[in-house]
């Protein structure tokens, strides 16, 4: 922990040296010199902005309480899609802004009963935000929908279709590191962001 703290403090100092000049007239210097926040930026970050850095009311960042999750069904601990409470959820991205629920429904009902469908709207424009979430009851239906629809065109726009939830962490986050066994200890970089 001590090493991480030092690392973070160094980073903050670097930030102050590099990027403060254009801000000094705003009187924001003192706000930027606040104590180390609970959530630190990764070491690559060069700019860190905001008046209340280090004074967050975050509950998530400070709690050590357990968060509930849906247990894995199979034996393999990591990798592969995660079942949701009533079925399997897939995400459709690249959805045309004027697509309607019926367009999505018609396209995806081909692979099984669509148990739920969220086509969320952009609050500013009222048009589609560009993604949809689709629920199937069976794994096979969802898998077939992904394999059949990913990379195809829906209303002249290419859509990307994938599972929404995974059983474990995304592995390529630490792709620059040598492959390591997952343990209860979170990766150092992640730890640096959350303590």
């Amino acid at each position: 922990m001590a090493a991480e703290d030092v690392e973070f403090v160094d980073y903050e100092r670097d930030d102050g040296d590099d990027g403060m000049e254009d801000e000094e007239e705003d009187g924001e210097v003192s706000a930027r010199a606040l104590p180390v926040p609970h959530i630190a930026a990764p070491a690559v970050a060069r700019t860190s902005r905001g008046r209340f850095v280090g004074r967050s009311r975050s509950v998530i960042a400070s709690t050590r309480d357990r968060f509930e999750s849906i247990p894995f069904a199979g034996t393999s601990a990591h990798g592969g899609p995660q079942r949701s409470i009533e079925g399997w959820i897939i995400i459709v991205s690249g959805v045309k802004e004027d697509a309607e629920e019926s367009d999505l429904y018609d396209a995806f009902a081909e692979f099984g009963e669509v148990k739920d469908l969220h086509l969320n709207l952009e609050r500013r424009t009222g048009y589609g935000k560009g993604y949809a979430l689709v629920e199937y009851g069976c794994f096979e239906e969802a898998q077939t929908a992904i394999r059949s629809m990913n990379g195809t065109q829906l209303l002249t726009k290419t859509i990307h279709v994938d599972w929404a939830f995974n059983r474990g962490p995304i592995q390529n986050v630490t792709s620059a590191r040598p492959a390591q066994r997952r343990s209860r200890t979170p990766p150092r970089r992640l730890a640096a962001m959350t303590y």
Partner: peptide, 18 residues
């Protein structure tokens, strides 16, 4: 209420895009 789940890279990519 405290819940957690791992999302896929596609979901993260969509959050980034937004």
């Amino acid at each position: 209420i405290r819940k957690e789940v791992f999302v896929s890279p596609s979901v993260l990519r969509e959050a980034r895009r937004i």
